[in-house]
């Protein structure tokens, strides 16, 4: 894909823009917003894989878990960290395959 207009509308560019603006945001924001942006970016990346037909049900499950629990960061630090551990465990299952 070499067409700039097309690139600017793509999900990949949206993710790129998200990463750069998150980097700037993280300088001033609460510490736990860093991990929030990272898992949110992970979910966006999984969405891209899904659209390309490259995702498997295991990967989609990771996205669903992120979307279900990422907002806990705003309500309970413990719950958010427990969610990150749960996500890591799910990832471990995949890595062990």
């Amino acid at each position: 894909m070499k067409n700039l207009e097309e690139l600017l509308k793509s999900d990949e560019f949206k993710l790129l823009s998200f990463l750069i603006t998150s980097a700037r945001g993280c300088v001033d924001e609460p510490q736990l917003y860093g991990p929030l942006r990272l898992v949110d970016a992970a979910a966006k990346l999984i969405q891209i894989l899904e659209k390309k037909g490259m995702a498997t049900p295991e990967i989609t499950k990771l996205r669903e878990l992120i979307e279900e629990k990422e907002y806990t960061v705003m309500y309970s630090e413990e719950e958010f960290i427990a969610f990150l551990d749960e996500l890591s465990k799910e990832l471990a299952k995949l890595l062990k395959k």
Partner: peptide, 15 residues
């Protein structure tokens, strides 16, 4: 209210 502009602002708003 313009959809395209909302989309652009979203790209610059991680929250």
């Amino acid at each position: 209210r313009d959809k395209e502009m909302i989309e652009k602002i979203k790209m610059a708003s991680p929250g």
